[in-house]
Amino acid sequence: MYKIPVSVLVVIHTADLQVLLLERADHPGYWQSVTGSQDPGETLFDTAIREIAEETGLNAADYQLTDWHVENRYEIYEEWRWRYGPDVRFNTEHVFGLRLPATIPVKLSTREHLNSIWLPWQQAAQKVFSSSNADAILSLPSR
């Protein structure tokens, strides 16, 4: 079954703007926030909650999950396009934030990620491979 070309990006952060990043298992050296495609019948909020749980082991209900009402449309990287229908070239990403009281250890999905790291927001924005992820992180101080 093909992925739906609609996804969430969830910036997990603390009040003092420490940001959690995850290193992709399928592309070592690529760091990102929590991301994932919407499943059929899911709301975007449900997708964010599911992806947070799958990728970090965190229960979003225990913290403050916010829809930032930011939507990014981008061309899907060629190396990942096989996951989508034959004529699908673009994805629409919806940005959320999950605010935690402090940095906490997370339980990674080893199928998806190799490592995690907490970084100050400026450093996190420089480390991520995706420009939309960097833009989301850079907007943290104004949120």
Results as ranks from 00 to 15, higher is better:
52 I>Y: 00
90 F>C: 07
64 Q>K: 14
109 S>I: 00
100 L>N: 06
24 R>F: 14
68 W>N: 11
9 L>I: 01
89 R>W: 13
40 P>H: 11
92 T>N: 14
87 D>N: 15
73 R>V: 11
72 N>I: 04
137 I>L: 09
81 R>F: 02
10 V>I: 15
21 L>S: 13
108 L>I: 06
100 L>I: 06
11 V>A: 05
28 P>F: 09
67 D>W: 06
142 S>H: 08
99 R>I: 03
129 F>P: 01
78 E>N: 06
7 S>R: 09
129 F>L: 12
72 N>G: 01
97 G>T: 03
137 I>W: 09
61 A>H: 08
135 D>V: 12
28 P>W: 08
75 E>K: 14
62 D>V: 02
74 Y>L: 13
48 A>L: 05
26 D>K: 08
99 R>D: 03
139 S>A: 15
131 S>Y: 07
29 G>V: 10
140 L>M: 15
22 L>N: 10
130 S>N: 14
36 G>Q: 04
67 D>A: 14
52 I>M: 00
42 E>R: 07
36 G>H: 03
134 A>P: 09
117 I>W: 02
28 P>Y: 11
50 R>K: 08
66 T>N: 11
58 L>E: 03
41 G>S: 05
53 A>M: 05
133 N>L: 06
91 N>E: 15
77 Y>D: 08
32 Q>N: 15
112 E>N: 11
16 D>Y: 12
65 L>Y: 07
25 A>K: 13
109 S>Y: 02
116 S>K: 03
20 L>F: 11
125 A>D: 06
23 E>A: 13
99 R>L: 10
84 Y>M: 02
46 D>W: 03
130 S>L: 14
89 R>T: 14
33 S>Q: 04
128 V>Q: 07
15 A>N: 14
73 R>C: 07
42 E>G: 03
116 S>M: 11
56 T>D: 01
120 P>C: 05
123 Q>V: 07
88 V>W: 07
115 N>L: 05
119 L>K: 08
106 V>L: 07
109 S>Q: 06
105 P>Y: 01
118 W>N: 09
24 R>E: 15
99 R>P: 00
115 N>E: 09
100 L>D: 05
57 G>L: 11
6 V>T: 11
125 A>R: 08
61 A>E: 12
35 T>D: 01
7 S>I: 03
83 R>A: 10
114 L>N: 12
28 P>L: 09
74 Y>M: 09
81 R>I: 04
